[in-house]
């Protein structure tokens, strides 16, 4: 059970002088249950990549396998794939259309042709998963606050019962409070359901705390792939492509260069503070 990409390339307007390689020979495996952050700036190909994973776009070259099956093989059930690999687009609240929140969340499972009770059971469950209680069920989705709209929209995809959830910039346009809330909700969701989650973002600081693995894309290629601390080690390369590692990384590397005996891989504030205190020989004194 996993997603495998084999030499996937995608070319916009192939065969014309305007041809542009949006994805360039991508090989990738995302095992089940992993929480992955996909980072890249606008135009790096990250949005194109995720649309390949649920068959909205078809690779110009190469193959995409879901659970060992080629999703572009003739006769492959794309509709079923889309219910297993849920994709939440950027600004998902712009896709809300029903008269109340509950009906909107029902839209997905209803399209799967499920019986009414099952549709409603799933909708309720999905709303619970994003933390919207029953009191919102009968409200118009257009009257919710920004963060609530986004939750409702995410529930709309969760109600399809996906095994993999892809979120394209789930924090875009939210304020710090909304950003933190959504990210924590997603983390809870992952812990509760064990779902594979792919979080697309252009902010390292946002995802660093939450994910197991970071994929960095640039010019349609996967530039770096590894655990957050491994990826941040390449902060200079990240800088060159217009991305930045979290500030802590810069501080720790700067201190390391100045002769401080610190572990430059520290990624959180607590780790960093501990390292600095240790390097200054202050950690024991504090304990005493």
């Amino acid at each position: 059970m996993s997603i495998v990409l084999e030499h996937v390339s995608y070319i916009y307007e192939a065969g014309t002088p305007l041809a542009q390689r949006a994805l360039d020979d991508i090989c990738l495996e995302i095992p089940n249950g992993q929480f992955v952050g996909l980072i890249g700036h606008t135009g790096s190909g990250k949005s194109t990549l995720v649309q390949h994973l649920n068959g909205l776009m078809k690779a110009t070259e190469g193959h995409v396998y879901y659970n060992g099956e080629d999703i572009d093989a003739p006769g492959y059930d794309k509709k079923k794939l889309r219910s297993s690999v849920g994709l939440v687009f950027q600004y998902p609240e712009h896709q809300l259309f029903e008269i109340d929140v509950f009906s909107d969340v029902c839209f997905g499972p209803k399209n799967l042709g499920l019986p009414k009770e099952e549709v409603e059971r799933r909708a309720r469950e999905a709303l619970n998963l994003v933390g919207l209680s029953e009191e919102y069920d009968k409200q118009s989705p257009f009257e919710l606050s920004g963060g609530q709209k986004r939750r409702a929209a995410i529930a709309g995809v969760l109600a399809m019962g996906p095994k993999v959830l892809i979120l394209d910039e789930p924090t875009a346009g939210l304020d710090p409070r909304g950003r933190e809330e959504i990210l924590q909700q997603i983390k809870r969701l992952q812990v509760q359901t064990g779902m594979t989650i792919l979080l697309v973002s252009h902010s390292m600081e946002d995802v660093a705390e939450y994910v197991d693995r970071i994929l960095v894309m640039n010019h349609g290629r996967v530039m770096l792939d590894g655990a957050p601390r491994e990826v941040f080690r390449h902060y200079k390369e990240l800088e060159e492509v217009g991305l930045a590692a979290p500030q802590v990384t810069y501080i720790m590397h700067a201190l390391h260069e100045k002769g401080f005996d610190v572990d430059a891989d520290a990624t959180t504030i607590e780790e960093a503070a501990g390292e600095i205190m240790k390097a200054l020989g202050r950690s024991e004194t504090l304990r005493n």
């Binding site: 649920n54 909205l56 509709k79 889309r82 994709l87 896709q95 997905g108 399209n111």
Partner: peptide, 16 residues
């Protein structure tokens, strides 16, 4: 462009 985006998003929710 927006139409294109909304269409894709609803297809992802099983719309036909």
């Amino acid at each position: 462009e927006e139409t294109d985006k909304i269409m894709k998003a609803q297809i992802a929710r099983g719309a036909d």
